[in-house]
Every structure is written in C-alpha cells, then in structure tokens.
Design a protein around this nucleic acid. Sequence first.
DNA 1: TCAAAAGTGTTATCCTTACACCCATGT
DNA 2: ACATGGGTGTAAGGATAACACTTTTGA
Lengths: 325, 325
Amino acid sequence: MAGPIRAPIEIGLTAAIVAIDNDAPQILVAGARSGEAIGLPTGPFDPLAHRTFEIALRTFVDQQTALSVGYVEQLYTFGDRGRLTRAGGADPHVVSVGYLALTRLPEDNKALEAAGARFEPWYRFFPWEDWRGGRPALLDAAILPALGAWAKTARREPGRALPHRDRLKLAFGSDGLPWDEEKVLERYELLYEAGLIEEALRDGREAARAGGKLVPLGEAMRLDHRRILATAIARLRAKLKYRPVVFELMAAEFTLTELQHTVEAISGRHLHKQNFRRLVEGTALVEPTGEMATATGGRPAALYRFRREVLAERPAPGLRFGARY
Amino acid sequence: MAGPIRAPIEIGLTAAIVAIDNDAPQILVAGARSGEAIGLPTGPFDPLAHRTFEIALRTFVDQQTALSVGYVEQLYTFGDRGRLTRAGGADPHVVSVGYLALTRLPEDNKALEAAGARFEPWYRFFPWEDWRGGRPALLDAAILPALGAWAKTARREPGRALPHRDRLKLAFGSDGLPWDEEKVLERYELLYEAGLIEEALRDGREAARAGGKLVPLGEAMRLDHRRILATAIARLRAKLKYRPVVFELMAAEFTLTELQHTVEAISGRHLHKQNFRRLVEGTALVEPTGEMATATGGRPAALYRFRREVLAERPAPGLRFGARY
DNA sequence: TCAAAAGTGTTATCCTTACACCCATGT
DNA sequence: ACATGGGTGTAAGGATAACACTTTTGA
C-alpha cells in the first residue's frame, strides 16, 4: 500500500465571501498589505483539527475576519500545476478547494482591517460582466478584437470539442447568440488561454499583442484566485434562479426594489420592474411586514421579509427570472 | 510559512464511470476479487506525474480498465473524517475528489476482468431510485416508516435550516410534494444519518431499529463510494436537461425510442412517448440518417444521429423534459 | 407642480401537457 | 387479423414578455 514517493500535498481552502453594498456586489479580499497582488482569504486544511472541510472553512474565516458567514457551498477543487505554484518552485503542491460564502456587510470594519482584509466591488476584477449600464464598452473596444485575432491564429487544442471561434461565440454571445450572464468562468478561461490577462502572463503564457497595446482587463489576483472568483460569480448567478440564496445577502426587512437591485447587481443585468414584482410575489418567497420604508426620493415602499417556511413548502424556490427581462 | 505539523494528506481520484446496457444504467466497479465490499475505481493523484486532475484520472482509468472515457466532469471533493478512514486508523488522511465519466460498454470484457473490474447495474445500489415500473414497493414497506420513526425521535442537528421531518418531505416527496428524481444525494444522506444503511453502521453510527428488522437497503460500497455514486447519478440526471450528455452513452446511430429508453433509465422515470419525440426534434439535437432499424417486434424505426454542430449553434441544448412527463 | 419611484391592470404569444388517432411490420 | 411498436395532429391551459397607466411622496 506504500507505493512510490510522491510530492507532498497541501490542501488550501479558499473562500469567495460575497456581500452586497447597495448596488455593488462585494468580495472579501485579504493580504493586500504591501504592494503584492490582492487575493482571497485562504486557510490550510488540517484533517486532525477539523472533521470536515466546511467546519475548517468556517473556523478560519471566523478567526481571520470576525465575519459570520451564513450560506456556504463548495465550488470546485483546482489542482492545476502552473497556476498555483510559481514557475520552478519546489514547494509542496497546493490543491485549492474553492468555496462560495454569503454574508452581510459588518457594521464597522475594524475587525476586518485588523486582519488585513476588506471588501472590494467584484466588478473591479470583471468589468466586462456588468451590463446594468448597457453593454460594456470594453468588450468591443478591446476584448472581442483581441480574442478574435487570437482565435484565428492560435492552433486548436486537442481534446476540445469546439474550435476557439465557436467557444468565443458561445461565451461572449457574438453572431446573434445572446449574452449568457452565467458563463463567467468560460469567458475568464478564454481570456486566460488567449494570454490577455495578467495571470496568464505570470504563469508563463505568451502575451497576445494583436492589433495594439495590451489593455489591462480588470484587476489581477494572486495565484488562481480570480478563477475561483469567476466560478463563484457564475455559481451564484445560476443559483439565484432555483434557490432562495439572495435573502442571505439582504437585511431582515427590505423593499422589493432593494431586492431587485440586489438581483441585478449579482446577475449584472437589468430586470423588468413589473414582471420582477409579479415573479417574486408569485413564488410566495416573501410576505409584507406591514411597515413602510421611509422613502429615498419617491413614494414610500412596502417592506417585505423572507418567508423561511417556503424552504419546507416548495421544492425549488428561486427567482426564475427569464432570458430577456 | 512552515506552520505546525499537520497530518499527511493524500488525494484520491474516484471515478463513477457510467455506461448504458439497453434499459439498465451501469456503473464500473473494481476490486471485488475477494469477499470484500465493492468499490469505485480509484487512483492516487501525484502532482509530479500529472499536470491536472483530469489528466491523472484519464491515465489511471485507461491503465486500470482499458476503457476510453469521453465526457469527464468533476463532482465534489469529499474530506469528511470518519467516512474515509477506518475507525481508529492513523493512516494518511485521504481526501477523495469524485468524478463523473461517461462511456460505452466495451465489445468484450476481457480487459476489464483482467483488471478485476466489471459493470454493475446502478439500481442495485439504489433500488428506491428506479420508478420506471411505478413507485418502488421498498419505499412504503421499509424506507418511509423507518425514516419517519427516526425523524420523530432523533434530535435536530444544529446548523441545519430544516428539521428532519421537512427534509424527509422534500427529499422523498411525501405530503403531496412531487418526487424529484434529482434529489438522489439528499435521499442517500438521510438514510445514512438515520443509520439505515450499512455504511452508516460501519462508520460507527447507531443502527436504527424502529418497528421491525433492518432490511438491507441496496448493496453497500467501500468507504464513501456509494455517496460519490449518489452524487454522480444526481448530477447526471440534472445535466441531461441542459446539456447533450446522453449522446456520450449512445451508439453512433440510434432510434428515438432507444434514446428515450436511455433517458428513462438514467432518470428512473417513465416519459411520455409523443412529447419526448417532439421535444427531441424541436431541439435540433438529432438528424435522421435515412436508414431504418430492423424492427424489434413492430414497425421499423428511423435511425438518427447526434448533430455535433448544435454545440456551436445553441447555448443550452439539453432534453428539457418537464416535471410530469 | 413636477420629478422620482411605487404599484396595478391587461394583452399577445409561446411552450407544455394531454389526448386521439393513423401507419408499418412480424406472426 | 391482430398485436406491437412507430409516428402525426391538434386543442386547452399556463407561464412569459411586453405594454400602458395610476398613485404617493419629497423638493
């Protein structure tokens, strides 16, 4: 059973901890003290100290950030060599298990700051994912031309079902295909493979310099943390539609417009007001508290609260907002 | 960066390799030479030998079974202590990364047998998941009474959103709720927690002996392999509906009835013939070859092939068969 | 009185579900 | 001829997408 000698392995638990600040989805970043790149909070997994991954994760997040996360979900386990270890490094191989966690912004940031952590708007890392103000200019100005040029020149990888050109079409919705806000990871991976983002160059890929200077595409992160964040955003955007996870991000009482803005912030899309209201009320996910919100520049809005009971009543209670609106 | 001494960790890649034999979904099992329990094929991950998990997985599957798997997808990473190591064992802690792989049955089984592996119908391990012949009698005869008794007596676990009673209702569809064929893992976990299956007793849980003798509920597997298989079935059942993965299990040419039987075998449900045909043709997933199948006891059926092009044409081409039919 | 946001009502369209029926082959 | 499975048409109901309009506040 002993087998040959293998490289030592460490398991790192990496958390994408999400909160909402009005209209901006926020992600907790850590270790940005000196000039080094920003990263997600990470902790090692020690099987002797913790019975399960999730317990270990909750413990180290609590210790490092004094945040209490509610919803926690495993995303994916990343083991690629080259994306984690620096080139030539002979350190123990680190496998990172990515997690998505949802929480609310803390009252004050002292505990966070003491731990060297803070919340950052997630669209700083993915500016092309925010379509609330219309189609991001960055797409046509920089991303699509560069990716298009790469798709023409780069040779097709073996084992891939589709050629670059088609993957691009599906992920970014050109040629009449719709933009699918859930394909966050596919888009990031294409940009990585094309050598258009900092992480790819750092990992030793060739810089793509097709037709002009290299525009930085979003802020980079340490190791493969931006990939984990992309996975987290994609999963959260998908999950919204079939599980009532938004409410983990909301205050106990909220207006329907606040709820809509939160959903829009996460999905990066504009939603149709009237239909959204009908949708929410139709699912029986919320109930009015009877109170009114002191208006923020208009007619006062009715306050609602999440009906926890639906969890036991309905099989799949999400906000199934559709493709168009 | 050195930190305290931690227990050594090994990463095991565990594969749920699925194929279809007429109407029976089959799972590849290994290591059933002596009288010991059946298990899924597993290989250790050595970061020095393989660049990614998936490459490592394909390599060891190829070596151990001489099977070429097509579609491969990571499922989940299981790290629970107690489900993997034998009680009191001080061996290196094993974390298992579960994978789902799809393939076709090999022409002859010599290579498989030489490796001590073979295909087994997966409903031997989950008899309550096959509803094609109507509601399985096992549910009302053994499972639901025992689970109901457990839900009454067992104390609620902290950190759980729902009490046992409601989890049971949702997972098994009592009280007018529909049976959801995708909740395979939830059902397995409830049976495990209730101490109704062999694995739970082996891990040191108390046997539940409410109201009669303990009926064995499906065949047990080594370690936590039945949990990984439950995850694989659940994922495959869900994925059928939004990705064209069935075709990885089909021959190059097939009749629509064969396709329907395959979908039914996986989902464990009976589907409505006419609507299924319309559904399939509507998605443009298949095209007629022009050939006819030599009839198997009735009118000859038209043969179809999978249109690979749809992958590049449509965003989400699955077989979205609905809730009822 | 006007801007801004909350909230209501109604219609056209498409997809899902369900049912009824006809067709081609082997025995 | 009849049993068996293959294959087609079409109507009812519900969900979605889109439209236009009224109400209540603060400045």
